[in-house]
Measured scan of single mutants.
Amino acid sequence: TEEVEKIVRELQKRGVSQEEIQRILKRNGIDPRDVEHVVRRLR
């Protein structure tokens, strides 16, 4: 989703690792598959 993408991009800008990003998003109830998808697209 748009929202997830924004969050991921923001965290990446701050130098947060992929694993940490995924952990944060999972904690916020976001589907890990969505996270994977977004992270892969932004690489």
Rank of each mutant, 00 (worst) to 15 (best):
I21E: 00
R14M: 11
H37E: 15
E20C: 03
E5I: 09
K26H: 13
N28H: 14
I21V: 05
I30C: 02
R23K: 09
R43H: 14
N28R: 12
R27P: 02
I24T: 06
H37W: 11
V16I: 11
V4R: 01
K6W: 07
E2F: 10
E5Q: 04
E19A: 11
E36S: 03
E36F: 03
L25T: 02
V35W: 12
E19K: 11
I30K: 02
V8A: 12
R27Q: 13
Q22S: 10
Q22F: 14
R40P: 02
I30W: 12
V35K: 00
L11K: 00
E2D: 11
N28W: 13
G29W: 03
N28L: 14
V39E: 02
L11V: 00
L42C: 03
Q12E: 04
K13L: 10
I21P: 00
V35I: 14
I7A: 10
V4S: 02
E36Y: 05
I7M: 13
D31L: 02
G15R: 03
R43C: 15
E36Q: 05
V39M: 15
S17Y: 02
I21H: 00
V35A: 07
E2N: 09
V39R: 05
D31S: 06
G15Y: 05
T1W: 14
L25P: 00
H37G: 08
R14K: 10
I30E: 02
E5H: 05
E5D: 05
V16R: 07
K26Y: 13
R43F: 15
E36W: 09
Q22G: 11
D31P: 07
L42K: 04
R23V: 10
Q12H: 14
G29T: 02
I21R: 00
V4A: 05
V39K: 03
G29F: 03
E10G: 07
R23G: 08
E20H: 06
H37K: 14
E20D: 12
Q22Y: 15
Q18G: 10
E2P: 09
K13V: 07
E20G: 07
G15F: 03
G29L: 04
R9F: 05
V4C: 11
Q22A: 14
V4G: 01
V8L: 07
E2M: 09
V39G: 01
K6G: 05
D31I: 01
R40W: 03
K13G: 08
K6V: 06
L25Y: 01
K13T: 09
L11P: 00
V8M: 06
I24L: 08
S17A: 07
T1R: 11
R40I: 13
K13E: 08
E19W: 11
E3S: 09
R14Q: 09
E36H: 04
E10L: 12
R14V: 08
D34K: 09
R33N: 08
Q22P: 05
G15H: 06
K26L: 15
P32E: 07
K26S: 12
D34C: 07
V8Q: 01
V16W: 11
I30T: 04
V8P: 00
E3I: 10
I24A: 05
R9N: 04
K13W: 07
T1M: 14
Q18H: 12
E36N: 02
S17R: 07
G29H: 04
H37T: 14
H37I: 14
Q22N: 07
H37A: 15
E2V: 09
Q12T: 13
Q18E: 13
R27A: 14
R23C: 03
L25K: 00
Q18L: 15
V39D: 01
I7T: 05
R40N: 14
D31F: 01
G15I: 02
I24F: 06
R41A: 14
Q12L: 15
V8S: 01
K13S: 10
E20P: 00
S17E: 07
I7K: 06
D31H: 06
R27D: 13
S17Q: 07
E10M: 11
I30F: 14
R14F: 11
E19T: 10
V35M: 04
I30P: 01
P32F: 05
E10R: 08
G15S: 03
R23I: 10
Q18M: 15
R23D: 11
R14S: 09
E36A: 09
V4H: 02
L11Q: 01
R33V: 08
L42F: 04
P32R: 02
E10D: 10
I30N: 03
Q12R: 10
E19Q: 11
K13M: 08
E19V: 09
D31M: 02
L25F: 03
R43W: 15
K6I: 07
L42T: 03
G15A: 03
D31C: 00
